[in-house]
Simulated scan of single mutants.
Amino acid sequence: MQVPPRKGPLTDLRVIELGQLIAGPFCGQIFADFGADVIKVEPPGQGDPLRDWGQEGFPLWWSVVARGKRCITANLREAEGQDIIRRLIAEADFLLENFRPGTLEKWGLGYEALKAINPRLIMIRVSGYGQTGPYAARAGYASVGEAMGGLRYVMGEADRLPARAGISLGDSLAGLHAALGALAALHHREKTGEGQMVDATIYESVLSVMEGLVPEYQFGGYIRERTGSYLPGIAPSNIYQGTDGMVVIAANQDTVFARFCEAIGQPGLKDHPDYRTHTARGKNQSALDALIQSWAATRSIEEIERLMTEHGVPVGRVYRAPEMLSDPHYAARESLIDVLSERWPGLRQQGVFPKLSETPGRPRWAGPETIGQHTEEVLSELLGLTPEQVEKLRTSGIV
């Protein structure tokens, strides 16, 4: 399979990716999507556990997170494996890792040690709780970070235990923040020539999107609670059931609500004392939602969408994968794209976001299926090792 060359704004950058599963590798995926040379290091014979994750018989998650990367193996518990990393780091821009804090230091690969080799190195560290603080040494997964960051408590219905999103949201948020921090550190390096360490945590990445949750309590004593499909005081903005599906209508702003009333054939509703202002609609949220649901229950989703769109009211169908694959706007914007894959012909995945007008990103392929597929290529190209030297390392279990 002929893999196309790297394209995008980061083609002059190299990332050495250590760690596994989601949070760190998702950060690496972002770099690879925008053209960086991402070299993922996996344990010999094992690989990243994510290779086997997904629905039974269809472990496709790996094909998203590994896309565009070169994958090698190195046993980081052995001195020779650690030496391979040091030699790769000498010419790299970033080292990305999501081990438990202290692990790399135990292997002689901590930031200070690697900075001595490459002062321009930017070390991206992703963990549950960070490199400092009393919880630093704890293991941390997305579910725990979502709980500690405040997200879990407010998710779900009020009469039951907190729910979770159907994705590893905390991991993805941590990966995004890690990439943002890394690019900020890169800008600093361009001005000063100095690298630095980026400390991204799952719980703080979740905390960062929790809006006014903390100051609302600090100054008003208000604790946000679970409210299901709506936000208290923001009305109308909910899911409504039509005759053939569900749709979200968001008409909480005064001018938008006036247009919404026209759309549903009740223009006088905007002047009703219970709904005239944003505050009034918030206080009478349940009654307003019931009124809208009664209107929607006799109409198709197509009719609801048409009426809302004609009147400039934000509306959107509740999508699953089938709707995404058939939507013309998804197609026009290449929100889903074909990604080259040997194992999964015709593979479609999410595109690269955000879109850049001059140097857009594009995944080259769905990542290697074989563990260590690029070991010999990378070690010979970057470290000057001969095939015989690579084979010796392989025989001894180092790669």
Rank of each mutant, 00 (worst) to 15 (best):
R70Q: 13
A66C: 01
I72N: 09
L60K: 11
G81M: 07
S63D: 12
S63L: 14
G28I: 05
A79G: 03
A32F: 02
A79D: 14
F31G: 02
G35V: 07
P43Q: 14
Q55K: 13
I72T: 11
G57V: 07
L50T: 11
G45I: 05
G45V: 01
I85T: 05
Q46A: 13
A79Y: 06
W61H: 13
G68V: 10
S63W: 05
I84R: 11
A23S: 15
P25L: 05
V65Y: 12
I30A: 08
P25T: 06
A66W: 00
D52Y: 11
A23T: 10
R70P: 02
W62H: 14
V65E: 10
I30M: 13
F26C: 05
D37E: 15
E78L: 13
I72R: 09
Q46H: 11
A36F: 07
D48T: 06
E78V: 12
R70K: 15
R67S: 09
L60I: 14
R70H: 09
L76N: 08
F31K: 01
C71D: 03
G45N: 03
G24I: 04
F31T: 03
G28D: 08
A32T: 05
P49C: 01
E78W: 06
D37L: 05
P25G: 07
Q55T: 13
P59F: 09
D48G: 04
R51T: 00
A32H: 01
V41M: 07
F31A: 12
A66R: 03
L50F: 05
E80N: 13
V65S: 04
E42G: 12
G35Y: 08
R51H: 03
I72K: 10
P49N: 03
G68M: 08
A66M: 01
I72L: 13
K40E: 08
K40P: 06
V38A: 08
D52A: 14
A79T: 15
E80Y: 11
G45Q: 05
A36P: 08
A32R: 00
F34C: 01
G57D: 10
P49Y: 00
G57N: 09
G81W: 10
L76K: 06
E56D: 12
Q46C: 00
V41Y: 06
G81H: 12
C71V: 15
L50W: 01
G28F: 01
I72F: 04
R67G: 03
T73E: 07
P43R: 15
A79K: 15
L50R: 04
P44K: 04
L60T: 14
D33Y: 07
Q55H: 13
V38Y: 04
G81N: 13
P49G: 03
E78T: 11
W53I: 00
G47T: 06
K69N: 05
F26N: 07
A79R: 15
R77F: 08
L50G: 00
G35H: 04
E42D: 12
W53L: 12
D52S: 14
G68Y: 02
D37I: 00
G81P: 11
A79H: 12
G24R: 04
V65Q: 06
A23P: 09
I84H: 10
E42T: 10
G47K: 07
G24N: 10
A32G: 09
W61S: 13
V64Y: 13
V41N: 01
V41R: 02
